[in-house]
Each structure stands twice: as C-alpha cells, then as structure tokens.
C-alpha cells in the first residue's frame, strides 16, 4: 500500500513538471503560431484578388456578421480588398459541410460580381477523391462565374468523379458567396 502511494506520487511529480514546461512553451509560441496561420490565410487571399500585396489591404466587415450569419449558417468571414484606397473585390470565407467534415473555403469576388477564384484553406475530405477540391483543375472552373451562370454540378461545373458531395458543397458555397456579395456591394 505504501509502495503504491510512493509510485503514485513519483508519477504525479513527473506529470506536474511535464505539464508546467509544456504550458510555458505553449504560452511562448502561441502568438507566433496564430500569426503564421493568419499569414497563410492572407497569402491565399492575395492570390484570389490580384494587386493586393499586404494583409493590411484587407478590411474585415464584422458589421455584416450579425445579419448575414443568420441567413448563411456556414459563413465564416467577409473581407473587402483595397488597392490604393479603391475597393477591388471581396473575399467571402465559408465553411460548408463536405463529405467527411467541414471545408474551409475562401471565394474571391471582383467588384463587378464575378468570381476571381477559390482557395481551399482547410478540409478533411478523402485523399484521392474529395481531396481533389484542392487541385487547380477543379478550382479553375469557378473563375469568372457570376450569378447569371447556373453554377450547378453537372451543368457548368464538372464534379470530381467519386466525390459528388464534396463538389456540390464547394459549388453551392461559391454560389452563396456570390449572392452575398451582390447584397453588400
């Protein structure tokens, strides 16, 4: 019995020290990690709206969230992009449900309501099937689309074979993003 207590206390001490050192490392690296993630996100945004060269040129429209997050449940973030003080377009980031999990998707839209491109920021779709939403051959189909296009899988968008659900989720999100920008522009 005495032995068990002694062993328990040793283990507890080890875990205590381990947890302490991990907490210290975490608090030291926390900000850098968040910064890295932000930077990566903005890098993707910059590719969607050509001409923008700095994260500062994006203004987040937080004022829109109370109204539009009710209407579009999967809406994540909305940014306006500026080049030399002039608004050149929007980034609508949505998190629609894919086949396996949420797909974090950024849609770039120009001021005249055309999709300038899409970027998949995060997803957990099946490798080899749904994961192909990351590929340029799928993504480039959305370039130049506007609300006057049908934006339906099987009509003007080719689905990834074997991954209709993922393809539909992305297509639908792009369509909704265009609708949203039509309302705020």
């Amino acid at each position: 019995m005495r032995n068990i207590i002694r062993l328990g206390i040793t283990l507890m001490m080890v875990c205590f020290i381990a947890a302490g050192s991990l907490a210290a490392t975490y608090s030291l690296t926390k900000e850098r990690i968040a910064l890295q993630k932000m930077e990566e996100q903005f890098k993707a945004y910059m590719e969607l709206l050509p001409g923008i060269t700095s994260a500062k040129d994006f203004k987040e429209r937080k004022d829109l969230y109370p109204k539009f997050k009710k209407e579009y449940k999967d809406l994540d973030k909305v940014f306006e992009g500026y080049v030399e003080g002039e608004r050149v377009g929007f980034i609508a980031q949505k998190i629609p449900k894919g086949y396996k999990g949420p797909i974090k998707l950024a849609v770039g839209i120009t001021v005249n309501g055309k999709a300038s491109g899409i970027a998949v920021i995060e997803h957990s779709e099946t490798p080899g099937l749904g994961a192909k939403i990351e590929e340029a051959s799928f993504q480039k189909q959305f370039k130049g689309k506007s609300l006057s296009d049908p934006l339906e899988v099987g009509e003007d968008i080719d689905a990834i074979s074997g991954a209709t659900t993922s393809s539909k989720a992305v297509t639908n999100a792009v369509k909704e993003a265009l609708e949203l920008c039509e309302k705020i522009k």
Binding site: A18, S21, L22, T25
Partner: peptide, 12 residues
C-alpha cells in the same frame, strides 16, 4: 513532452 515542445516550436 519534448515532442510537443518540438511540435509547437516548429509550428511557430
């Protein structure tokens, strides 16, 4: 613990 430290530092 050491692996987690490496993981966090590399991520940062």
């Amino acid at each position: 613990s050491f692996v987690t430290i490496v993981d966090l530092v590399m991520r940062a």
